[in-house]
Amino acid sequence: MTTEKPQLVTNGKRVDGRGLDELRPIKIEAGILKNADGSAYLEWGSNKIMVGVYGPREAFPKHVQDPERAIVKCRYAMAPFSSLEEHGRSGPNRRAVEISKVTKEVFENVILLERFPGCEIDIFIEVLQSDGGTRAAGITAAAVALASSGIPMRDIPYAVSVGKDGENLLLDLNKLEDNTSDADMPIAIAPRNNDVLLLQMDGTLTKDEFARGVSMALKAGEHIVALQRAAIGSKYRKE
């Protein structure tokens, strides 16, 4: 969408040498913050994301309490030093407010909220360094942090983005690809039944490309889920 568009795919390889359906390297570590009830640190390519989870605890202020179930609060924010560009504004901007909202909705789907009426569960996602796909990385990390807190969940969701460059669908766009691609579609999935918990898209996409993109995301999900489980397992499993 900018004027001088770099060539994103050359001989089936991308700007960072990946194949079209190749994820960037992902590293997840669970339970690394002392005070938080659950936490995770995730590196996804150059993205570096810290997640802390608190709760269930009494919802505050009192008027937000739901007598039937816990409420979920989510803060996604990018640190002012997180990007390659200028110093950013600290705290959530309008983009971050929207991402916080759709992320919250992902976890409302899987947490057994009805077990904790009147309570709140807080998810804090801080993007310390960003390189495209931070909302997907944040959801993937938050799922691990929640699992490590012991908050009961139906499933451990993951998220990944699929993009497009001309005829090619590209898995897991980095920042350069995201800025110049023809479409970007982050998607969050509940792996037990492949329910779609988050879906956003902008750019240009046909129905066929949507279906192929979802297949790509689901296939990548197998790998992401394995990493999430390994992170939780290596922290808490006793040999």
């Binding site: 759709v102 789907n109 492949n194 329910d195 779609v196 918990l197 879906l199 956003q200 240009t204």
Partner: peptide
């Protein structure tokens, strides 16, 4: 006329593909 231009899923429920 030609293509999907934007999508947004919302709320706590899910959709199947």
């Amino acid at each position: 006329e030609g293509a999907i231009r934007a999508m947004q899923k919302g709320l706590r429920g899910a959709f199947s593909v």
